[in-house]
Every structure is written in C-alpha cells, then in structure tokens.
C-alpha cells in the first residue's frame, strides 16, 4: 500500500496554483485535505502524475458573509473550522448539525470543505446538503472563472464538471428566505461509516403554513446527489401536516428514487430508508420553519 511515484508542487497563492494546473493539464491533481485522495493513491486506484498541494494557499481558508447575504466558504477551510463556526451555526444550522457525521473528528481536522465537495463521493453528506440549499460553486482557472449551481456541478461518482485546469475556490450559500428551514437525516450502519441513504431537505412555508417551496436531495440512491421532483409536487401548496409529509415520503420512496441492491442492503430496504428519512427530515424542517 504505497503510492506510485508522483511529482509534488506546493504553491502559496491561487494564482500560482492555477498556473501549475494549467501547465499540468490532465497530469495534475489537487491535494486538499488528503482524506480520500491519499488512501486512493495508497491503493493505487489513483496514480496522479503530479500533486498540487493547496495547504499553503492561505487565501483559500475562510468563512465570510457576502454583501448579498450569502455565506461564503473558502475551499481549503478545514471541516472542523466549519463545524465550530458561529456564523455557520446561525445561518446554516443544518451544516453545523451534519458536520459530526462527516467521517471522524480526526478526518475533519485535515479534511477540507471544498475537497469534500469536489471529491463528489455519491454518499457524501456535504454535496447533498449543498444541492438542497441551492449553493453555487465558484470555479477559477488561469484563463477565467465561472459560477455553477451545485445542481449542475456533479456528473457521476467522483466526477464533477471541473476541468483539469480548473479549481473549486469557494462555495456560496444564498440566505434562506423567511419561514425556511433545512434538515438532514441519514442512516449508517456505524458511527462515522459510509451512509446507506441520506436526505437533505429545504422547505419554505407561506403564512398559512403551506409548502411554498421545497427542495429534497438524496445520497446513496444514485450515482450523484439526487434532487427529487415527484415528492416535491406532492408537497407544494399543501398544508404542512403529518399526512402531507407522509404522502411525500411515500412518493419519494416509490417514484423518485431507483436504488440498487448491494452487500449492505436490498433496493427495497433502501426505499424503506428513503421513506423513513424523508418523513423525519421534513418533519424536523417544518417544525423549525414554523418557529
């Protein structure tokens, strides 16, 4: 379990890093916290020609508020920093509550927020939450920059729209509208283990407690974070009652998701989890939104 030989670069600025990525093209691979890449390299499942280590790029470590009220998290911000950040807890409590489920504490002291998102693990909690919250990815390259909705960021397992010369530098979470709340629920066999199914929901209620807006995204039922549509149709315009939530959860399990069977669980069992977790997540989000 030793990695194949690789070149190593340690830039100190985004500009320098982007230059390197531009030169290296498909040979370059960004090293952020290394909690997934390094094991993959040790297994020789990943054999990058060159690593561009961002750990010295100080300008990528931050959490701040944007003028439009959105929350910005720099790509190299450590997961623990996000976990214990007061502004995050205030504005995006769902992120604060979910952080302890991301790997183990030790992983989170090295793991980075942007690294987690860009790794595109189909069972990742943060990608799914980011999709539900309507986050946007700020992507830069030597020749330009672009903003991409997290909905469009993921292509498949461990695959994003990032080009080899591009870097995810920041993710932006828009401020939640009034009477809105988000929630995340997952089922894992063990504390800190890969979740079997997870769901992130964002709901907005109108002044009569009817669902004005809802976004529901899943992990573990497909190849990437999956935003459901059928169950949302069931919810919109309905009063936020237990019955409405129950109907939406049933719809999600039966119509939205198409999970597979593997050594940990059958497709039917996963549908059952989708049902249970969707109900719990919606119930919690509605309660918070009413406050």
């Amino acid at each position: 379990m030793k990695p194949a030989a690789f070149e190593y670069y340690a830039p100190v600025s985004v500009e320098e890093a982007l230059d390197l990525l531009d030169q290296l093209g498909y040979d370059g691979k960004i090293l952020a916290g290394g909690q997934s890449l390094i094991p993959a390299m040790n297994f020789r499942m990943a054999q990058p020609h060159a690593l561009v280590d961002l750990n010295r790029v100080k300008e990528l470590f931050y959490i701040k508020s944007a003028p439009d009220g959105s929350l910005l998290i720099g790509a190299m911000t450590r997961d623990v920093t996000v976990e214990f950040d007061k502004m995050v807890a205030e504005r995006l409590p769902v992120v604060t509550e979910t952080m302890p489920l991301v790997g183990y504490y030790q992983n989170r002291t090295r793991g980075t927020y942007g690294g987690n998102l860009a790794h595109a693990d189909p069972t990742g909690q943060l990608p799914t939450i980011s999709v539900a919250l309507g986050a946007r990815a700020h992507i830069r390259s030597k020749t330009g920059e672009r903003w991409v909705e997290m909905d469009d960021f993921y292509l498949g397992p461990f695959t994003t729209i990032l080009e080899p010369q591009e870097m995810l530098v920041e993710v932006a979470y828009p401020a939640l509208p009034p009477r809105s709340a988000a929630s995340f629920k997952e089922f894992t066999r063990q504390v800190g283990a890969t979740p079997m199914v997870g769901v992130a929901v964002l709901v907005t209620l109108d002044d009569k407690n009817r669902f004005k807006n809802a976004k529901i995204a899943y992990l573990g039922v497909g190849e990437k974070p999956y935003a459901a549509t059928e169950c949302v149709k069931v919810l919109l315009g309905q009063e936020a009652t237990a019955e409405a939530i129950r109907a939406a959860a049933e719809t999600a399990a039966q119509k939205d998701v198409d999970p597979g069977t593997d050594i940990h669980g059958t497709a039917d069992y996963r549908r059952n989890l989708v049902n249970v977790l969707t109900r719990k997540a919606l119930t919690q989000a509605v309660q918070s939104a009413k406050k």
């Binding site: 066999r189 940990h264 669980g265 059958t266 039917d268 069992y269 059952n272």
Partner: peptide, 11 residues
C-alpha cells in the same frame, strides 16, 4: 444479520 436482512425476513 444486518438491518436489511432483518427487514427482508420480516417483510
């Protein structure tokens, strides 16, 4: 056993 097997047994 695991949760999925138990679910299938009961089902």
């Amino acid at each position: 056993l695991n949760p999925s097997r138990l679910y299938e047994l009961v089902k």
